[in-house]
Design a protein around this nucleic acid. Structure first.
Length: 272
DNA sequence: CCCGGAACCTGAAGGC
DNA sequence: TGCCTTCAGGTTCCGG
């Protein structure tokens, strides 16, 4: 699913459909999509509440509702939120539909059924403790150094650990490591201050570029209006099977780190 | 606490 | 055409 740039794009583009609207009904087609409370209670509680604000924390999308509740959505690997202002039937793999008082419907399309929805008056019950937002000023090179300096896990695994930094996923971790010329298997503690500085800058740059390009549409990611994003066209190594390094021409390699496909240039990113 | 791997799901794509 | 394997934007749980 969506990583930080994709969720940020969904938040920005969904807001005009949602803000100020009242929820008139909710349909759930796959019960386990609703994590909390029960499907029946969700429907009973949300109907009549107005959407006051839409925000993002890490990869979580948070709608603030007028009745004191929050509707929290995580799209996980394959989820999309699609807005429909006509009467078209829900697209395939729609797991939930939110009906609004102006006739708009929001489809939660999620082929792999990993996505989750919560309705709660306490955000903490839905979200675990998350690390800092990497695009906010509080995230400095020093922050990054403290997070990795005593860790021997591969830096790739640390970057995608949401309790350390919120919002970086598989693709943008690979892109940031390539940009900083750091091998994904380097233990966190082995990074030099210079490398930390490069990585910090690279994280911000790849995430900002991803947002500017409205997210990456490799598979299953669509923006609320149904359009794709463009960020994947700018990827240097992510999903780069069979491609060559844009800097040196060496074939991109794929390894597995924590069960996730990891792409890098074996020449620009020296092995540990 | 830290680390690695399996589990949760379904479909697309490529090899034979 | 089939069948089988691999791969896919994530998180959580379990064992060492």
């Amino acid at each position: 699913m969506p990583e930080l740039p994709e969720v940020e794009t969904v938040k920005n583009e969904l807001a005009p459909y949602l803000i100020g609207r009242k929820v008139t009904d909710v349909s759930i087609f796959w019960d386990r999509t609703v994590k909390q409370p029960s499907v029946d209670e969700l429907r009973r509680r949300i109907v009549g509440q107005k959407v006051i604000a839409l925000s993002r924390r890490g990869k979580y999308l948070i709608a603030t509702l007028s009745g004191g509740d929050f509707l929290i959505i995580h799209m996980k690997m394959s989820g999309s939120l699609l807005a429909s202002r006509d009467s078209a039937s829900p697209p395939p793999y729609t797991r939930a539909v939110i009906h609004l008082d102006d006739g708009t419907r929001i489809f939660f399309r999620d082929p792999r059924k990993f996505g989750k929805i919560w309705l709660t008056d306490d955000i903490k019950t839905a979200m675990p403790e998350l690390g800092p937002e990497p695009l906010e000023n509080q995230f400095t090179p020093n922050t990054l150094m403290k997070l990795v300096k005593n860790r021997k896990a591969p830096i790739k695994a640390l970057l995608t650990d949401q309790t350390l930094i919120a919002g970086i996923g598989n693709m943008y971790a690979d892109e940031a490591l390539f940009s900083a010329r750091i091998h994904p298997l380097r233990p966190g503690a082995s990074l030099t201050p210079k490398e930390i500085a490069r990585l910090h800058e690279a994280i911000k740059a790849v995430l900002r570029a991803g947002i500017d390009d409205k997210g990456a549409s490799i598979v299953n990611y669509y923006r609320p209006g149904g359009e794709t994003g463009y960020a994947h066209f700018a990827f240097k190594v992510a999903h780069g099977r069979g491609k060559k390094c844009p800097l040196c021409g060496t074939p991109i390699e794929r390894i597995t780190v924590r069960n996730r496909g990891t792409y890098f240039c074996p020449r620009c990113q020296k092995a540990p």
